[in-house]
Design a binder for these strands. Structure first.
Length: 378
RNA sequence: GUGGCUAUGGUGUAAUUGGUUAGCACGGGAGCCUGUGUCGCUCCUUGUCCAGGUUCGAGUCCUGGUAGUCACC
Protein backbone atom coordinates (compact mmCIF):
# COMPACT_ATOMS: atom_id res chain seq x y z
CA UNK A 1 0.00 0.00 0.00
CA UNK A 2 0.96 3.62 -0.22
CA UNK A 3 0.86 6.51 2.16
CA UNK A 4 0.64 10.14 1.17
CA UNK A 5 1.58 13.05 3.36
CA UNK A 6 1.19 16.75 2.50
CA UNK A 7 4.20 18.52 3.99
CA UNK A 8 3.10 21.97 3.01
CA UNK A 9 0.10 23.56 1.36
CA UNK A 10 0.97 26.78 -0.44
CA UNK A 11 -0.95 29.89 0.49
CA UNK A 12 -0.23 31.46 -2.89
CA UNK A 13 -1.69 28.71 -5.07
CA UNK A 14 -3.12 25.21 -4.89
CA UNK A 15 0.46 23.87 -5.04
CA UNK A 16 1.48 21.46 -2.34
CA UNK A 17 4.65 19.71 -1.26
CA UNK A 18 4.28 16.07 -0.36
CA UNK A 19 5.79 12.66 0.21
CA UNK A 20 4.30 9.66 -1.51
CA UNK A 21 5.51 6.54 0.31
CA UNK A 22 5.40 3.21 -1.49
CA UNK A 23 6.75 -0.28 -0.76
CA UNK A 24 9.65 0.65 -3.05
CA UNK A 25 10.53 3.94 -1.47
CA UNK A 26 9.39 7.53 -1.14
CA UNK A 27 8.63 10.04 -3.84
CA UNK A 28 8.98 13.78 -3.30
CA UNK A 29 6.04 15.54 -4.90
CA UNK A 30 5.22 17.29 -7.10
CA UNK A 31 7.21 15.28 -9.60
CA UNK A 32 7.42 13.92 -13.12
CA UNK A 33 6.58 10.27 -13.75
CA UNK A 34 8.77 8.81 -16.49
CA UNK A 35 6.89 6.92 -19.19
CA UNK A 36 8.19 3.35 -19.59
CA UNK A 37 5.34 1.94 -21.68
CA UNK A 38 6.92 -1.39 -22.50
CA UNK A 39 8.97 -1.68 -19.32
CA UNK A 40 11.74 0.64 -20.40
CA UNK A 41 12.39 4.33 -20.74
CA UNK A 42 13.15 4.24 -24.43
CA UNK A 43 16.84 4.62 -25.26
CA UNK A 44 17.95 4.47 -21.61
CA UNK A 45 19.09 1.84 -19.14
CA UNK A 46 17.32 1.95 -15.78
CA UNK A 47 20.56 3.00 -14.07
CA UNK A 48 20.65 6.02 -16.40
CA UNK A 49 17.06 6.80 -15.44
CA UNK A 50 18.09 6.84 -11.78
CA UNK A 51 20.89 9.25 -12.69
CA UNK A 52 18.35 11.69 -14.17
CA UNK A 53 16.75 11.81 -10.70
CA UNK A 54 13.53 10.36 -12.02
CA UNK A 55 11.74 9.02 -8.94
CA UNK A 56 8.80 7.13 -10.37
CA UNK A 57 7.91 5.34 -13.62
CA UNK A 58 4.68 4.28 -15.29
CA UNK A 59 4.39 1.18 -17.46
CA UNK A 60 1.48 0.15 -19.61
CA UNK A 61 -0.84 -2.79 -19.02
CA UNK A 62 -2.02 -3.06 -22.61
CA UNK A 63 1.47 -3.12 -24.10
CA UNK A 64 2.96 -5.46 -21.51
CA UNK A 65 -0.01 -7.78 -21.86
CA UNK A 66 0.73 -8.08 -25.59
CA UNK A 67 4.51 -8.28 -25.15
CA UNK A 68 5.80 -10.23 -23.36
CA UNK A 69 2.57 -11.06 -21.48
CA UNK A 70 2.03 -10.67 -17.73
CA UNK A 71 2.79 -14.38 -17.15
CA UNK A 72 6.34 -13.88 -18.42
CA UNK A 73 6.80 -10.77 -16.28
CA UNK A 74 5.43 -12.56 -13.21
CA UNK A 75 7.67 -15.56 -13.87
CA UNK A 76 10.71 -13.27 -13.75
CA UNK A 77 9.77 -11.78 -10.38
CA UNK A 78 7.28 -9.08 -11.51
CA UNK A 79 8.00 -5.72 -13.09
CA UNK A 80 10.42 -4.23 -10.57
CA UNK A 81 12.81 -7.14 -10.80
CA UNK A 82 12.18 -7.77 -14.50
CA UNK A 83 13.17 -4.24 -15.49
CA UNK A 84 15.76 -3.70 -12.73
CA UNK A 85 13.85 -0.76 -11.22
CA UNK A 86 13.77 -1.11 -7.46
CA UNK A 87 11.86 2.14 -7.04
CA UNK A 88 8.27 3.27 -7.12
CA UNK A 89 6.30 2.12 -10.14
CA UNK A 90 2.83 2.66 -11.61
CA UNK A 91 0.95 0.80 -14.31
CA UNK A 92 -1.55 2.50 -16.55
CA UNK A 93 -4.68 0.45 -17.09
CA UNK A 94 -4.94 0.35 -20.89
CA UNK A 95 -7.75 2.89 -20.82
CA UNK A 96 -5.79 5.32 -22.94
CA UNK A 97 -5.44 2.70 -25.68
CA UNK A 98 -9.26 2.68 -25.93
CA UNK A 99 -8.73 6.15 -27.33
CA UNK A 100 -5.37 5.95 -29.09
CA UNK A 101 -6.24 2.74 -30.95
CA UNK A 102 -9.89 3.74 -31.34
CA UNK A 103 -11.23 7.20 -32.15
CA UNK A 104 -7.73 8.69 -31.94
CA UNK A 105 -6.60 6.40 -34.74
CA UNK A 106 -9.80 6.85 -36.77
CA UNK A 107 -9.70 10.63 -36.56
CA UNK A 108 -5.91 10.87 -36.67
CA UNK A 109 -5.70 13.05 -33.58
CA UNK A 110 -4.20 13.12 -30.12
CA UNK A 111 -6.17 13.65 -26.95
CA UNK A 112 -5.31 17.34 -26.99
CA UNK A 113 -6.88 19.13 -29.92
CA UNK A 114 -5.56 22.53 -30.85
CA UNK A 115 -8.12 25.17 -31.68
CA UNK A 116 -11.89 24.83 -31.73
CA UNK A 117 -13.27 21.32 -31.46
CA UNK A 118 -16.32 20.30 -33.43
CA UNK A 119 -18.52 17.57 -32.03
CA UNK A 120 -17.80 14.71 -34.35
CA UNK A 121 -18.47 11.75 -32.07
CA UNK A 122 -22.07 11.23 -31.03
CA UNK A 123 -23.88 8.97 -28.59
CA UNK A 124 -23.53 5.23 -29.40
CA UNK A 125 -20.79 5.84 -32.00
CA UNK A 126 -18.08 3.16 -32.08
CA UNK A 127 -14.52 3.45 -33.33
CA UNK A 128 -13.62 1.40 -36.42
CA UNK A 129 -11.01 -0.95 -35.04
CA UNK A 130 -12.32 -1.72 -31.56
CA UNK A 131 -15.65 -2.21 -29.86
CA UNK A 132 -16.58 -0.64 -26.54
CA UNK A 133 -19.11 -2.67 -24.55
CA UNK A 134 -20.55 -2.52 -21.05
CA UNK A 135 -17.95 -4.96 -19.74
CA UNK A 136 -14.89 -3.65 -21.49
CA UNK A 137 -13.27 -3.22 -24.87
CA UNK A 138 -12.58 -5.68 -27.65
CA UNK A 139 -9.29 -4.67 -29.26
CA UNK A 140 -7.50 -5.92 -32.30
CA UNK A 141 -3.88 -6.40 -31.37
CA UNK A 142 -1.61 -3.91 -33.14
CA UNK A 143 1.11 -6.56 -32.83
CA UNK A 144 -0.46 -9.42 -34.78
CA UNK A 145 -4.10 -8.48 -35.33
CA UNK A 146 -5.62 -11.02 -32.98
CA UNK A 147 -8.65 -10.11 -30.90
CA UNK A 148 -8.28 -9.40 -27.21
CA UNK A 149 -10.66 -8.20 -24.53
CA UNK A 150 -9.75 -5.75 -21.79
CA UNK A 151 -12.15 -4.52 -19.13
CA UNK A 152 -11.82 -3.56 -15.47
CA UNK A 153 -11.55 -7.18 -14.29
CA UNK A 154 -8.99 -8.09 -16.94
CA UNK A 155 -6.93 -4.93 -16.48
CA UNK A 156 -6.72 -5.29 -12.70
CA UNK A 157 -5.84 -9.00 -12.99
CA UNK A 158 -2.98 -8.11 -15.37
CA UNK A 159 -1.81 -5.18 -13.25
CA UNK A 160 -1.69 -7.44 -10.20
CA UNK A 161 0.52 -9.90 -12.05
CA UNK A 162 2.77 -7.01 -13.12
CA UNK A 163 3.04 -5.93 -9.50
CA UNK A 164 3.54 -2.14 -9.67
CA UNK A 165 3.07 -0.13 -6.48
CA UNK A 166 0.20 1.86 -7.94
CA UNK A 167 -2.43 0.64 -10.40
CA UNK A 168 -5.01 2.65 -12.33
CA UNK A 169 -8.68 1.83 -12.78
CA UNK A 170 -9.70 0.87 -16.29
CA UNK A 171 -11.37 3.86 -17.96
CA UNK A 172 -12.19 5.25 -21.35
CA UNK A 173 -10.25 8.30 -22.45
CA UNK A 174 -12.88 9.94 -24.67
CA UNK A 175 -11.90 11.81 -27.83
CA UNK A 176 -11.62 15.62 -27.63
CA UNK A 177 -14.25 15.92 -30.36
CA UNK A 178 -16.85 13.92 -28.42
CA UNK A 179 -20.19 15.64 -28.00
CA UNK A 180 -21.75 15.87 -24.53
CA UNK A 181 -24.15 13.03 -25.35
CA UNK A 182 -21.24 10.68 -26.03
CA UNK A 183 -19.31 12.01 -23.04
CA UNK A 184 -22.19 11.37 -20.61
CA UNK A 185 -22.55 7.83 -21.87
CA UNK A 186 -18.79 7.23 -21.67
CA UNK A 187 -18.52 8.83 -18.26
CA UNK A 188 -21.26 6.69 -16.73
CA UNK A 189 -19.53 3.58 -18.09
CA UNK A 190 -16.12 4.70 -16.82
CA UNK A 191 -17.72 5.21 -13.38
CA UNK A 192 -19.14 1.67 -13.40
CA UNK A 193 -15.73 0.39 -14.48
CA UNK A 194 -14.14 2.30 -11.57
CA UNK A 195 -16.25 0.43 -9.01
CA UNK A 196 -15.58 -2.84 -10.83
CA UNK A 197 -11.84 -2.14 -10.84
CA UNK A 198 -11.92 -1.69 -7.06
CA UNK A 199 -13.97 -4.84 -6.61
CA UNK A 200 -11.53 -6.82 -8.77
CA UNK A 201 -8.51 -5.91 -6.64
CA UNK A 202 -7.27 -8.71 -4.39
CA UNK A 203 -3.69 -7.48 -3.86
CA UNK A 204 -2.26 -4.86 -1.53
CA UNK A 205 -1.26 -2.61 -4.43
CA UNK A 206 -2.63 0.91 -4.42
CA UNK A 207 -5.35 1.77 -6.92
CA UNK A 208 -6.14 5.21 -8.35
CA UNK A 209 -9.55 6.07 -9.78
CA UNK A 210 -9.71 8.24 -12.87
CA UNK A 211 -11.83 11.37 -13.22
CA UNK A 212 -13.06 12.13 -16.73
CA UNK A 213 -15.58 14.66 -18.04
CA UNK A 214 -13.73 16.39 -20.86
CA UNK A 215 -13.70 20.15 -20.89
CA UNK A 216 -17.07 20.57 -19.20
CA UNK A 217 -17.06 21.72 -15.60
CA UNK A 218 -20.39 20.05 -14.81
CA UNK A 219 -19.14 16.69 -16.04
CA UNK A 220 -15.78 17.01 -14.29
CA UNK A 221 -17.59 17.90 -11.07
CA UNK A 222 -19.97 14.99 -11.44
CA UNK A 223 -17.09 12.61 -12.20
CA UNK A 224 -15.06 13.85 -9.24
CA UNK A 225 -18.08 13.38 -6.98
CA UNK A 226 -18.61 9.78 -8.09
CA UNK A 227 -14.95 8.74 -8.18
CA UNK A 228 -13.90 10.37 -4.90
CA UNK A 229 -16.82 8.67 -3.13
CA UNK A 230 -15.12 5.34 -3.85
CA UNK A 231 -12.27 4.10 -1.63
CA UNK A 232 -9.44 4.75 -4.05
CA UNK A 233 -5.91 5.44 -2.79
CA UNK A 234 -5.46 8.37 -5.13
CA UNK A 235 -6.94 9.96 -8.21
CA UNK A 236 -5.96 10.26 -11.81
CA UNK A 237 -7.17 13.04 -14.07
CA UNK A 238 -7.75 11.80 -17.59
CA UNK A 239 -9.01 13.00 -20.91
CA UNK A 240 -8.60 16.37 -22.52
CA UNK A 241 -8.28 19.60 -20.61
CA UNK A 242 -8.78 22.13 -23.38
CA UNK A 243 -6.84 22.91 -26.49
CA UNK A 244 -4.85 25.89 -25.24
CA UNK A 245 -2.63 26.52 -22.24
CA UNK A 246 -4.91 29.05 -20.53
CA UNK A 247 -7.91 26.72 -20.75
CA UNK A 248 -5.80 23.85 -19.48
CA UNK A 249 -4.67 25.87 -16.46
CA UNK A 250 -8.28 26.84 -15.66
CA UNK A 251 -9.53 23.26 -15.95
CA UNK A 252 -6.66 21.93 -13.83
CA UNK A 253 -7.70 24.48 -11.22
CA UNK A 254 -11.19 22.95 -11.13
CA UNK A 255 -9.66 19.57 -10.49
CA UNK A 256 -7.45 20.92 -7.74
CA UNK A 257 -10.57 22.15 -5.99
CA UNK A 258 -12.71 19.08 -6.66
CA UNK A 259 -10.32 16.43 -5.33
CA UNK A 260 -9.81 15.67 -1.62
CA UNK A 261 -6.56 17.25 -0.40
CA UNK A 262 -5.43 14.27 1.66
CA UNK A 263 -5.04 11.91 -1.30
CA UNK A 264 -2.49 12.07 -4.11
CA UNK A 265 -3.52 13.33 -7.55
CA UNK A 266 -1.93 12.20 -10.77
CA UNK A 267 -2.40 14.09 -14.02
CA UNK A 268 -2.38 11.57 -16.84
CA UNK A 269 -0.36 12.17 -19.97
CA UNK A 270 0.16 15.90 -19.84
CA UNK A 271 3.28 17.94 -19.30
CA UNK A 272 5.16 19.94 -21.87
CA UNK A 273 7.78 22.09 -20.11
CA UNK A 274 5.63 25.20 -20.40
CA UNK A 275 2.68 23.35 -18.79
CA UNK A 276 4.52 22.27 -15.67
CA UNK A 277 4.19 25.44 -13.61
CA UNK A 278 0.43 25.44 -14.15
CA UNK A 279 0.21 21.75 -13.27
CA UNK A 280 2.07 22.30 -10.01
CA UNK A 281 0.14 25.44 -9.14
CA UNK A 282 -3.12 23.54 -9.69
CA UNK A 283 -2.12 21.17 -6.92
CA UNK A 284 -1.12 18.12 -8.92
CA UNK A 285 1.28 15.77 -7.15
CA UNK A 286 2.47 13.65 -10.04
CA UNK A 287 2.10 13.79 -13.82
CA UNK A 288 3.46 11.61 -16.59
CA UNK A 289 4.53 12.85 -19.96
CA UNK A 290 6.19 11.28 -22.94
CA UNK A 291 7.52 14.72 -23.92
CA UNK A 292 11.05 14.46 -22.46
CA UNK A 293 11.73 11.06 -24.02
CA UNK A 294 9.62 11.25 -27.17
CA UNK A 295 10.89 14.68 -28.15
CA UNK A 296 14.37 13.68 -27.06
CA UNK A 297 14.40 10.81 -29.53
CA UNK A 298 13.23 13.17 -32.27
CA UNK A 299 16.05 15.62 -31.61
CA UNK A 300 14.31 18.25 -29.49
CA UNK A 301 16.18 19.25 -26.35
CA UNK A 302 14.34 21.14 -23.62
CA UNK A 303 16.54 23.83 -22.10
CA UNK A 304 16.36 26.91 -19.92
CA UNK A 305 16.39 28.88 -23.19
CA UNK A 306 13.51 26.91 -24.74
CA UNK A 307 13.42 24.07 -27.23
CA UNK A 308 16.43 23.31 -29.38
CA UNK A 309 16.07 21.22 -32.52
CA UNK A 310 19.33 19.34 -32.40
CA UNK A 311 18.97 18.13 -36.00
CA UNK A 312 19.74 21.59 -37.34
CA UNK A 313 23.11 21.89 -39.06
CA UNK A 314 23.78 25.23 -37.37
CA UNK A 315 24.57 23.36 -34.14
CA UNK A 316 27.50 21.61 -35.80
CA UNK A 317 29.49 24.77 -35.07
CA UNK A 318 28.24 25.08 -31.49
CA UNK A 319 30.64 23.88 -28.83
CA UNK A 320 28.36 24.67 -25.88
CA UNK A 321 26.44 22.02 -23.90
CA UNK A 322 22.72 21.52 -24.60
CA UNK A 323 21.95 23.82 -21.70
CA UNK A 324 24.79 25.78 -20.07
CA UNK A 325 22.64 26.09 -16.94
CA UNK A 326 22.09 22.32 -16.65
CA UNK A 327 24.22 20.18 -14.38
CA UNK A 328 23.41 16.82 -15.94
CA UNK A 329 26.08 14.41 -17.13
CA UNK A 330 25.26 14.96 -20.80
CA UNK A 331 25.66 18.72 -20.42
CA UNK A 332 28.88 18.18 -18.52
CA UNK A 333 30.43 15.82 -21.05
CA UNK A 334 29.08 16.56 -24.54
CA UNK A 335 28.75 19.48 -26.95
CA UNK A 336 25.79 20.47 -29.10
CA UNK A 337 28.04 19.90 -32.12
CA UNK A 338 28.67 16.28 -31.15
CA UNK A 339 25.01 15.55 -30.38
CA UNK A 340 23.91 17.12 -33.66
CA UNK A 341 26.50 15.06 -35.49
CA UNK A 342 25.12 11.90 -33.85
CA UNK A 343 21.56 12.74 -34.93
CA UNK A 344 22.64 13.43 -38.48
CA UNK A 345 24.64 10.23 -38.57
CA UNK A 346 21.61 8.39 -37.16
CA UNK A 347 23.61 7.11 -34.21
CA UNK A 348 21.42 5.61 -31.50
CA UNK A 349 23.42 7.38 -28.77
CA UNK A 350 21.93 10.69 -29.94
CA UNK A 351 18.52 9.62 -28.65
CA UNK A 352 19.96 8.41 -25.38
CA UNK A 353 21.85 11.63 -24.73
CA UNK A 354 18.94 13.99 -25.36
CA UNK A 355 16.46 11.74 -23.52
CA UNK A 356 18.82 11.72 -20.56
CA UNK A 357 19.17 15.48 -20.63
CA UNK A 358 15.44 16.11 -21.03
CA UNK A 359 14.56 13.93 -18.06
CA UNK A 360 17.27 15.65 -16.02
CA UNK A 361 15.96 19.03 -17.13
CA UNK A 362 12.40 18.17 -16.01
CA UNK A 363 13.58 16.80 -12.69
CA UNK A 364 15.83 19.80 -11.97
CA UNK A 365 12.95 22.12 -12.76
CA UNK A 366 10.59 20.22 -10.48
CA UNK A 367 13.17 20.18 -7.70
CA UNK A 368 13.30 23.98 -7.96
CA UNK A 369 9.52 24.20 -7.87
CA UNK A 370 9.42 22.00 -4.74
CA UNK A 371 11.99 24.28 -3.16
CA UNK A 372 9.84 27.29 -4.09
CA UNK A 373 6.79 25.74 -2.44
CA UNK A 374 8.86 25.00 0.67
CA UNK A 375 10.06 28.61 0.75
CA UNK A 376 6.54 29.89 0.27
CA UNK A 377 7.20 31.70 -2.99
CA UNK A 378 5.05 29.51 -5.23
C1' G B 1 45.54 11.35 -82.80
C1' U B 2 41.30 7.98 -84.44
C1' G B 3 36.88 5.39 -83.19
C1' G B 4 32.92 3.89 -79.70
C1' C B 5 29.93 5.15 -75.48
C1' U B 6 27.94 8.73 -72.01
C1' A B 7 26.08 13.73 -70.35
C1' U B 8 19.08 14.85 -66.14
C1' G B 9 18.63 19.12 -59.05
C1' G B 10 24.06 19.23 -54.23
C1' U B 11 24.56 13.43 -54.92
C1' G B 12 22.61 8.79 -57.11
C1' U B 13 18.97 7.60 -60.50
C1' A B 14 13.76 7.26 -63.54
C1' A B 15 10.76 8.99 -67.63
C1' U B 16 5.63 3.77 -71.48
C1' U B 17 11.48 4.28 -77.15
C1' G B 18 8.87 11.70 -79.84
C1' G B 19 3.35 12.90 -76.18
C1' U B 20 0.26 15.88 -69.66
C1' U B 21 3.06 20.12 -65.07
C1' A B 22 10.49 15.71 -65.78
C1' G B 23 9.27 11.02 -61.05
C1' C B 24 12.00 8.73 -56.81
C1' A B 25 15.76 8.36 -52.96
C1' C B 26 19.41 10.78 -50.19
C1' G B 27 21.03 15.68 -49.03
C1' G B 28 19.47 20.81 -47.59
C1' G B 29 15.36 23.88 -45.24
C1' A B 30 10.71 24.62 -42.25
C1' G B 31 7.06 22.65 -39.21
C1' C B 32 4.39 18.83 -36.32
C1' C B 33 4.46 14.85 -32.89
C1' U B 34 0.98 15.43 -24.39
C1' G B 35 -1.86 8.26 -19.82
C1' U B 36 4.20 6.35 -26.83
C1' G B 37 0.87 0.94 -32.26
C1' U B 38 5.64 4.31 -35.71
C1' C B 39 14.20 5.95 -34.25
C1' G B 40 7.70 8.75 -36.87
C1' C B 41 4.67 12.34 -39.90
C1' U B 42 3.84 16.74 -43.15
C1' C B 43 5.44 20.51 -46.28
C1' C B 44 9.24 23.22 -49.06
C1' U B 45 13.75 23.51 -52.01
C1' U B 46 16.86 22.89 -56.62
C1' G B 47 17.70 19.83 -62.74
C1' U B 48 17.45 17.94 -68.82
C1' C B 49 26.06 20.22 -70.54
C1' C B 50 26.42 24.45 -74.58
C1' A B 51 24.87 26.40 -79.71
C1' G B 52 21.82 25.39 -83.63
C1' G B 53 18.19 22.21 -86.40
C1' U B 54 13.74 18.73 -87.49
C1' U B 55 8.61 18.52 -85.46
C1' C B 56 1.95 20.32 -83.75
C1' G B 57 5.24 18.61 -79.73
C1' A B 58 12.34 17.14 -78.02
C1' G B 59 15.35 14.87 -71.73
C1' U B 60 14.35 11.56 -75.97
C1' C B 61 15.82 12.50 -83.09
C1' C B 62 19.86 15.31 -86.26
C1' U B 63 24.52 18.62 -86.74
C1' G B 64 28.47 21.07 -84.32
C1' G B 65 30.98 22.19 -79.72
C1' U B 66 32.54 20.99 -74.73
C1' A B 67 33.51 17.43 -70.87
C1' G B 68 34.08 12.45 -69.07
C1' U B 69 35.13 7.39 -70.18
C1' C B 70 36.79 2.95 -72.88
C1' A B 71 39.50 0.80 -76.98
C1' C B 72 43.26 1.17 -80.62
C1' C B 73 47.58 3.76 -82.62
Amino acid sequence: MIHFRVLKQSKRSRARLGILSTPHGDVETPTLVGVATQGAIKALMTDDVVATHTQLLICNTFHLHLKPGEAIVAAHGKLHKFMHWNRPLMTDSGGFQVFSLGFGRDLNMGKILKGASSERVRAHDQPQSLTITEHGVRFRSPVDGHSLFLGPKESIAIQQKLGADIMFAFDECPPPVAGTAYLRESLARTHRWAAQSLAARTSRQALYGIVQGGKFFRLRKESARVITALPFDGFGIGGELGGDKATMARMLGWMGDLLPPAKPRHLLGTGHPEDILGIVRAGMDTFDSIAPTHYGRHGVAFTSAGRLDMKKTSFLKDDRPLDPKCGCKVCHDYSRAYITHLFRAKEIAAMSLVSFHNLSFYNDYLARLRRDIRRGVL
